[in-house]
Amino acid sequence: MDLIIPSSGLIFWQLLGFLALLFILIKFAWKPMLAALEERESGIENALKAAELARNEMANLKSENEKLLQEARLERDNILKKAQEASVKMIEEAKNEAAKVAAEQIENAKAVIETEKKAALAEVKNQVAILTIEVTEKLLRKNLADEKAQRALVDEFVKEVQLN
């Protein structure tokens, strides 16, 4: 039974050793351990706060980036719209300018054609007049070979002149 129930002296000395050990631990080891635990706890708490701040800052940056991206998209759309409008305007102006130039060229061509037509008609009239004069001259030489025919022609011209 000695093994199951210790003697009172043993209990006393064990209690005295435990209390001495407890006193020494409280005096020298407990405070540094508590300080280390508090320091670790505050470090973890600071790390959690820093992580929360970083998370909030990341959320703010993400929303700000989304806002900037949206603004950039709007600006891009505006620039593309303006570029397309400018392109359409330039094409329209080029078409109008080409139409004006074509109209001017057509008018110039019509004027040149009209001028050439008049010149050709004048040339034809001149040729007809020359041919008429030559034919008339040949006919008159043949018809007016005798003096009697010449007098008859002069009389006829005189009558026509008096009528006019």
Rank of each mutant, 00 (worst) to 15 (best):
K95M: 05
Q127V: 06
D155V: 02
L121S: 03
S87W: 06
S42P: 00
V161G: 05
D155E: 07
Q127W: 03
E134Q: 13
E52W: 08
N46S: 11
Q162G: 03
E147S: 12
I44Y: 10
E160T: 09
E66M: 07
T132G: 08
A72Y: 05
L131P: 00
D2N: 06
A86F: 06
R55A: 15
V154T: 09
K142A: 15
N78D: 11
L121H: 01
L48C: 05
N108M: 04
V154F: 12
E147M: 11
A20Q: 10
L68C: 01
I5P: 01
E147F: 10
L131I: 09
L10D: 13
A120Q: 12
E41S: 06
E39M: 05
A47G: 03
L34P: 00
I106P: 00
L25R: 10
L139A: 09
E97Q: 05
L16C: 09
K81M: 01
S8G: 07
A29H: 13
N78E: 14
E156N: 08
N56T: 11
N65P: 00
P32K: 08
N143R: 12
K82D: 10
V158H: 09
R55N: 09
S87T: 08
A59G: 02
K138F: 13
K138N: 11
R151F: 08
V161L: 13
I5V: 06
E116P: 02
E45N: 08
L25E: 12
P32F: 04
E147T: 11
